[in-house]
């Protein structure tokens, strides 16, 4: 029952996104212009960025992209549509659908970012599969924690600033773990070295999803 609701709501979000392509294209343009600005401001000619800087820059670009992309997940819903949803589906369905949808969105954006980053700035990654796994985990992590935050921020008047100040502190632990894991992937370390980070990330994600699942009904009621 809940699963059907979630799938249906996700389908709704995808259709909406497809119909208003400007939002998604805007995000793609945001990613690519940020990468390009970084390329220009570091004055790079052919991949001279050190590995720690490459890694940090990549995740910071992704962080800002995700904050921007996810911030609109609740503000774009009009009041009338929210009321309509309220009478049809359960709040748990809404938040799970939003999280799943944002995960897909973030995954696409992160892969595009990686691709563009590789072309413009260079690619020192040695363990590609681990790095892709890190990107997947990052997409899941960013969307789980930021979806709830965007739900909270959407209720307030200055939701743009609030999204950043509420979201950043919550996302930092996750970001640090991700950076460490992707650093391991870049250096081509043995995969068992990243196991600790992997488990911690999954645990944090599980906590955040559970909390969102429990709390969203209270947020929704208006």
């Amino acid at each position: 029952m809940l699963l059907r609701e979630v799938l249906y709501l996700m389908q709704k979000d995808f259709v909406l996104e497809w119909r208003q392509k400007y939002a998604f294209n805007g995000m793609l343009l945001y990613v690519s212009s940020t990468v390009f600005i970084c390329y220009l401001s570091f004055g790079l000619r052919g991949g001279t960025l050190g590995v720690p800087v490459w890694n940090a820059l990549f995740w910071i670009i992704l962080l800002f992209t995700s904050v921007n992309a996810i911030a609109k997940s609740f503000t774009q819903e009009s009041k009338g549509r929210l009321l309509y949803l309220y009478s049809l589906v359960s709040p748990q369905g809404v938040i799970l659908a939003k999280i799943a949808y944002n995960t897909c969105l973030m995954l696409i954006l992160a892969l595009m970012c990686y691709l563009f980053y590789t072309i413009v700035i260079g690619n020192p990654v040695q363990d590609d599969y681990l790095f892709l796994a890190t990107i997947l985990l990052g997409a899941i992590g960013f969307s789980t924690s930021l979806t709830m935050v965007s739900g909270i921020a959407a209720k307030a008047s200055n939701s743009g600033t609030l999204m950043a100040i509420l979201g950043f502190p919550i996302i930092i632990p996750m970001l640090l773990m991700l950076m460490k894991m992707s650093k391991n992937a870049i250096d081509g370390l043995d995969r068992s070295a990243s196991l600790d980070e992997l488990i911690t990330l999954l645990a944090i994600n599980a906590i955040v999803v559970t909390i969102s699942f429990i709390l969203y009904p209270y947020l929704w009621r208006n």
Binding site: S145, I152, P169, I170, I207, V208, I211, L215, L219
Partner: peptide, 9 residues
Amino acid sequence: VYNIFAYAA
């Protein structure tokens, strides 16, 4: 809601 969320984080 945010308070509970922040504490859990």
